[in-house]
Amino acid sequence: MRAMRSGLLAAALLGALTACGNLDAREDGAAGAASRFEASLRATDTVRSCAALAPGTRDELEQTAELPCARALPEAGLPPAEKVRTVDVYGRQARVVTDKDTLFLSAFPGGWKITAAGCTARPEKPYQCLIKGG
């Protein structure tokens, strides 16, 4: 019984430490994905930009614009940013605030993907975003 209690305690501690240890890595991952997305926007590399979008966001962009992503994305008017200012990660979701934009990301098997970009804060309401999922 004592061994079982110790095992459960060790598992709980390991889980907590793993969760804390992973936070920095997840923040770095989200910041890196946002930086690469912004770099692709600056380079007008629409193939890379579109590949960085979450599937739902890409679908919504294409359906709304009635154009393929590579043609619709430049028309969205996203402001290409240079620097990441703050990163917030909770679970599998993240918000990255850059010098010119705010992006929302979600974790996918291939890494972090952009779920919304070109976002402007509104008091007591969700951000208003130039592109987002449906």
Binding site: Y90, G91, Q93, R95, A116, Y127
Partner: peptide, 13 residues
């Protein structure tokens, strides 16, 4: 959990 849901809904944590 609240902030994770808020981020999914494009709201600030």
């Amino acid at each position: 959990a609240y902030n994770e849901q808020h981020l999914r809904e494009l709201q600030a944590p």
